[in-house]
Simulated scan of single mutants.
Amino acid sequence: MLADWRTRLLHDHPALFPDLRVVATGLGPTLVSVGWPSVGEGWRALVERACARIADACAGVPAAEVAILGIEEKWGTLRLTVSTLDLCETASAAVDLAVDLAEARSLHVCETCGAPGRFSVKHGWYATVCAAHADGYLPVRSRDLDLQVTTMIVGDRTVRMARRYEVRSDRFIALEPPIDEDS
């Protein structure tokens, strides 16, 4: 039952997939969940690392409810949809960071094989692919691909922050001091 990495992921993190159940199929029993990873083998490590980070962020947090509702490719990058309920601010920020890091890293990893890849386009379809899997895809050239601008409510203030994803260290670097929009 644990032959596929996706099945092992659900088995290893049952708390993240609360709707997890065993279903009988023609090939025998299998685990299923609404959060089933619908991405290529190349993003396996990204998904596994994100799930481990999310599980670590919620470990020991009383009354925390976290559910992965989707793991998919969208517009050529990884998308993780996570529902959180009753998480403290620290755990919630750690879950958000785990999701953001995985999604940012997916711009640099071929979804098919896991080799270094480039965000590319072919006839309006986006994908992150390596040279071996490009098959007519052309790299999207933009120095802003790794830029993220976020708006957060901090207390009673709205704060906007910009950061850039750094591939080598798998982390975000703040680009400027936060902008307090309410001042």
Results as ranks from 00 to 15, higher is better:
84 T>G: 02
12 D>S: 06
42 G>M: 05
61 V>A: 13
13 H>A: 07
169 S>L: 15
177 P>K: 10
182 D>Y: 11
25 T>P: 01
103 E>S: 03
29 P>L: 06
124 G>M: 09
97 L>F: 00
75 W>H: 15
124 G>R: 09
34 V>Q: 13
27 L>I: 12
24 A>I: 08
103 E>M: 05
174 A>R: 11
101 L>Y: 01
57 A>R: 07
16 L>H: 06
9 L>Q: 09
75 W>Q: 12
37 P>V: 02
16 L>N: 06
182 D>N: 15
19 D>H: 12
85 L>G: 13
91 A>L: 01
61 V>R: 11
139 P>F: 07
84 T>P: 00
154 V>D: 15
178 P>T: 10
183 S>D: 12
49 R>A: 14
43 W>C: 10
143 R>W: 10
38 S>V: 10
28 G>S: 04
164 R>L: 08
16 L>W: 04
99 V>M: 03
97 L>Q: 11
30 T>V: 13
120 S>Q: 01
58 C>K: 04
31 L>M: 06
109 V>I: 15
99 V>H: 03
117 G>H: 02
146 D>M: 14
7 T>K: 00
97 L>G: 05
183 S>N: 10
106 S>I: 02
41 E>R: 14
111 E>P: 08
117 G>S: 00
139 P>R: 00
151 T>K: 15
77 T>H: 05
44 R>S: 01
161 M>G: 07
172 F>P: 12
125 W>C: 12
19 D>F: 10
51 C>E: 01
132 A>F: 01
65 E>F: 06
19 D>W: 08
159 V>G: 09
35 G>S: 08
115 A>W: 03
161 M>R: 15
114 G>P: 01
61 V>S: 11
55 A>C: 04
61 V>D: 08
